[in-house]
Write a protein that binds this DNA or RNA. Sequence first.
DNA 1: CGCACATAGTTCATTCCTGCACTATCACCC
DNA 2: GGGTGATAGTGCAGGAATGAACTATGTGCG
Lengths: 153, 153
Amino acid sequence: MSHNRAMRTRSRDGARRPAADSLVFSFLSAADAVEARLEAALSQTGLSLAKLAVLHLLADAKEPLPLSDLAARQHCVRSNITQLVDRLENDGLVRRRADLDDRRSVLAELTPAGRQAHAKGVRALAGAQRAIVRALEAGEATSLQNALGALSS
Amino acid sequence: MSHNRAMRTRSRDGARRPAADSLVFSFLSAADAVEARLEAALSQTGLSLAKLAVLHLLADAKEPLPLSDLAARQHCVRSNITQLVDRLENDGLVRRRADLDDRRSVLAELTPAGRQAHAKGVRALAGAQRAIVRALEAGEATSLQNALGALSS
DNA sequence: CGCACATAGTTCATTCCTGCACTATCACCC
DNA sequence: GGGTGATAGTGCAGGAATGAACTATGTGCG
């Protein structure tokens, strides 16, 4: 995706303080960079992070899932999943099925092509993921992880 | 904003390794959480991060800026700025002016309302920013900062 | 001078996301 | 058993971003 541009206030103070000011925006901008790298690695496969995430959920749960479930697990609104599944269905990677037990519900199911795309996507992503983590010193990785706990809502 | 849902592979190994696997997605998801908090703090002012960023550039450079400049400084494509400025102009926060020296160019200028909105936005953001940094232990802040260097492209 | 090329802005189509309004179905319970 | 209210999916409008195609305008040069 690579959204979110920084809004840093010009630092002015060399390297004195730990950039209390711009730390937050450096964080967001680093996240954009990381996201862009993943998206780039994925671009070969024709998938986006959003699409791969849905395929991943479907592959993980070895059975068709209600769209509501997908929304809940993705922490997003239902209408987003409706559209994402529209596109995935259009790509031939996912199928909509009726839920016989609850006629309100619509199940999403991987097609064979979807299963393959997922496998390819996961492989492509794994490489990029390793490359990114490799860019961190051993110590940085663990301390980063500690800091993340405090930041995640 | 709060985009970008995680695509973590179920951890399976308790808390053993430093989550080499999901570290990258934890990172992205933490960034989403932080971004959502900033956006929430800003919501009172009716601004978004994207809009405030443009106001900020305009306020910083004490003169009207060509839209190309805004795009370059935001690291985004020109068409995005066109639309952002459309919305800001619609909000009455920014005006488009002709550039007399280069008739290809269009300058964006803050209106008085824009200047006020910027001030309010910056204040609202500063509070949230401090709150977020405060959530980090002193040590975490600096080690986070170190890690960010390696991750930013 | 005139042509070739680069640059500035806009338009359009598309992705990904939100929130709201609407319909259909289920579940409860009096 | 029939209303009431939660839940499921969709439609629609709009924000934020991309990239491609197009129009002006500026620039440089043979």
